[in-house]
Design a protein around this nucleic acid. Structure first.
Lengths: 226, 226
DNA sequence: TTCGTCATGTAATGGGTTACATGATTAC
DNA sequence: GTAATCATGTAACCCATTACATGACGAA
């Protein structure tokens, strides 16, 4: 038992669903792919992994052990522990994916939830997006009124800070609007049905996200090795 | 003794500098004026206040005691504790204001620091703004390269999340650019000199912030009473 | 008189980081 | 051979929240 915060657990399960990994790599993925928002340290990750194993959602396989190691790396290397999702784990993750409770659109959770929208059913996606939007709209309203009440009292910097804050929130609302709209437009369902899936993992669903795209260019470089 | 996280301490000192207040009110201010970012609970605030008192930076005056209570409220009301900044506290806050160490532009700190820019000397303001900007630029670069490295591997949602994240950061950089520019343009210094101040508190300095301004309209309403 | 909000606190708990300890592997 | 980075862990601490306990004041 022992409830971990959900967010780490969720992300770990989700990443491991795509392919088994060891802790170290997992952490990097956590802090790049998903981690624009959150950076976890080993002191958090490893204990969490242990707990997930204890719950039967993961198994650790010492790399170089059973499971057809494809030659190479047989030089008696130290026990790298590769974590693999169990059937139970998969099931559990599926359940988590299906939940769309109010906390799913809180600041901390929303990002991770969104990151796994690829495996999320369309109606849940919708609920989460709309939930988040109204969350932000409430916040916006509160900021608005509290600003109105104290405008005179506040100096220019505080005001500017407030203004910028609101603008950020407004921007996110617009983003959500786009997403929701293109989500509605998208013809496809991706199984509210919990049985008709698993043949690889989730093919091309994505109801067509709004077209954007920034500059790219390859460029091998460092890693957030805190 | 006992280092509090800095950020709460800083904010409390700063708010109390403007005028004495009791905890309850303090908390509200914390969660509106400054608190777009952070919301503190009583379980955090009250112990912190005690600690600040212990440090000699604040004194508590039981409302209805000495200090010329302007009639009214003499009906034996319960001990509301009003916190007032001591000379030492003021001095300490002044020191904190002057620091522009690297942590000053970290996510958690930057907001509060900015909120008190009104009492901050211009060169410190500059350093903090520029520090934050380069912080964000680093981050942007990292996101950029890590995105380039994994673009193919990622599904559309993850990509979109990443894109939106970067766009947000870019936006903040542009904001900082504006601020820095208008800060440079601003004719005024506001005392790097630590002796020539205190005659009331900080008059109209502000080197002219970029012109913006959203809708207002008065509208009395609720309070984030979590 | 009851409800809301003002007002002050504390103990248990949670969730996470820092700093440390350890060692293998790779690249130069 | 030595530095970087891969790799796994743990114990001590920190910051803050939750839930609780308590009570006064004002308005309906």
């Amino acid at each position: 038992m022992s409830r971990r915060s959900g967010i780490l657990e969720f992300a770990v399960l989700g990443l491991l669903r795509e392919s088994p990994m060891h802790g170290y790599e997992l952490r990097k993925r956590l802090n790049t792919s998903l981690g624009v928002f959150r950076a976890f340290s080993y002191g958090t990750l490893y204990p969490c992994l242990k707990a997930l194993v204890a719950n039967g959602w993961l198994i650790e396989e010492t790399d170089g052990a059973p499971e057809a190691v494809p030659a190479a790396a047989l030089t008696g290397r130290r026990a790298k522990i590769v974590y693999r999702l169990t059937a139970a784990g998969k099931e559990h993750f599926e359940e988590l994916l299906a939940h769309s409770g109010p906390d799913a659109w809180e600041d901390e959770h929303f990002g991770v939830r969104f990151a796994f929208f690829g495996q999320t059913s369309r109606d849940v996606r919708m609920r989460v997006l709309e939930g988040r939007r109204s969350r932000l709209e409430e916040r916006l309203e509160r900021m608005h009124t509290s600003l109105a009440r104290s405008r005179e009292r506040l100096d220019d910097y505080t005001l500017e800070l407030q203004r910028h804050g609101m603008e950020s929130v407004e921007r996110e609302v617009r983003w959500l609007n786009e997403l929701i709209e293109s989500e509605r437009a998208g013809r496809d369902q991706r199984a509210p049905d919990p049985a008709a899936q698993d043949s690889k993992h989730q093919s091309g669903d994505t109801g067509g996200l709004p077209r954007h795209r920034g500059g790219s260019r390859p460029d091998p470089s460092d890693d957030t090795t805190t």
